[in-house]
Design a protein around this nucleic acid. Structure first.
Lengths: 192, 192
DNA sequence: GTCTATATGTGGATAGAC
DNA sequence: GTCTATCCACATATAGAC
């Protein structure tokens, strides 16, 4: 992140993420990737140590962004309702910035090698922060008395799938999308 | 579906679906599958023609159930609110009956061969029926004036992820889960 | 930093004995 | 219907010339 010019390694990882979304990590070969980058497969190894390292680069950075972000949100001195909206907004922003990486994060994390434990810890931490916000919301009577896990996974289910249709709705403004999602997820779709 | 005793082919497909959920279709080898079934890899080919055929068996049957089900719901002579609840209930039932197959349906459909077009047609049809129900809801002022696509993908996002946590919450009764999801998805999580 | 050539392993699938 | 043995294509990754 020190320059606007992409290093070769970054170019490889970004291209890889796009292919991983299309076919999944296991079905993408180093030859596929090399062809897309415009070099021969062997040349990739001057920039990365292994296929697995690419997956690590793609996934772990995003996972860190999510966990750091929700920690800041949780600890912030704001109302619970605003925290919930901030969590939704963060998902929209991080997904719009990197929809391909989000696909790998969701679907290919089990193919991580060394990095798997770190990823699982980050995910676990993320969910725990989210649970604490939900608990706070229920304690303050801002959230209904619905099972905490249902609220967590229902909300996360929608947010985790954002990567599937944000690219298809490129025309939709982020701010409008965030507003609609907050309304839908927090207040529901039925009229009162 | 003509007997309570599983045929060898059914046993293979059920075992395969479980492995596909763990590692994804591409990363599961015929040797992995054979070991899990308790035979040698070559023996599998007395029951199935190819690895791809297994994926077809796993995915297409479920996709058909979903599309047929939502068509019946849409055409039924019931109120829109009940239709929405029926869609949610169908997701819970089909997912609880076959959580492993749902993983393949969500994540491995792109590896279908011949069956891919059929799958895509079924999915498209499913979404179209869902859209029509949403339109009906908005026309009758049962649903808020939120973008139809947002309602569709927000709701589907949560429902498509049910396979990830239904197995972890085996103790949760289906009827309680359906009630909670209807409340959460339709009326929202915030207090009025 | 990219290439050609290749080492080494493993994938899906088949042949034919039992 | 299951086995052993095997074919052949293709996977990741390395060696060494340029």
């Amino acid at each position: 992140m020190k320059s606007t010019t992409l290093t070769r390694k970054q170019e490889i990882c970004i291209t890889a993420a796009r292919l991983f979304k299309q076919k999944g990590y296991s079905a993408v070969t180093m030859r596929d990737l090399a062809a897309e980058v415009g070099v021969k497969a062997a040349s990739l190894y001057n920039h990365i140590a292994s296929k697995e390292e690419i997956l690590n680069e793609v996934i772990v950075n995003i996972a860190e962004s999510f966990t750091e972000g929700i920690q800041d949100i949780r600890l912030a001195d704001t109302k619970v309702a605003e925290k919930l909206e901030a969590v939704i907004a963060q998902h929209v922003h991080l997904t719009a910035d990197n929809p391909y990486g989000m696909a790998s994060l969701n679907n290919d994390w089990m193919h991580l090698g060394e990095g798997k434990e770190k990823y699982l810890a980050l995910r676990s931490s993320y969910e725990q922060h989210f649970r604490e916000i939900i608990k706070e919301g229920k304690a303050q009577n801002v959230l209904k008395d619905i099972d905490e896990e249902i609220i967590l996974f229902s909300t996360l289910g929608t947010l985790r799938n954002l990567y599937l249709w944000i690219p298809k709705k490129a025309d939709l403004q982020r701010s409008k999308l965030i507003d609609s999602l907050c309304e839908t997820l927090l207040n529901g779709v039925k009229t009162a």
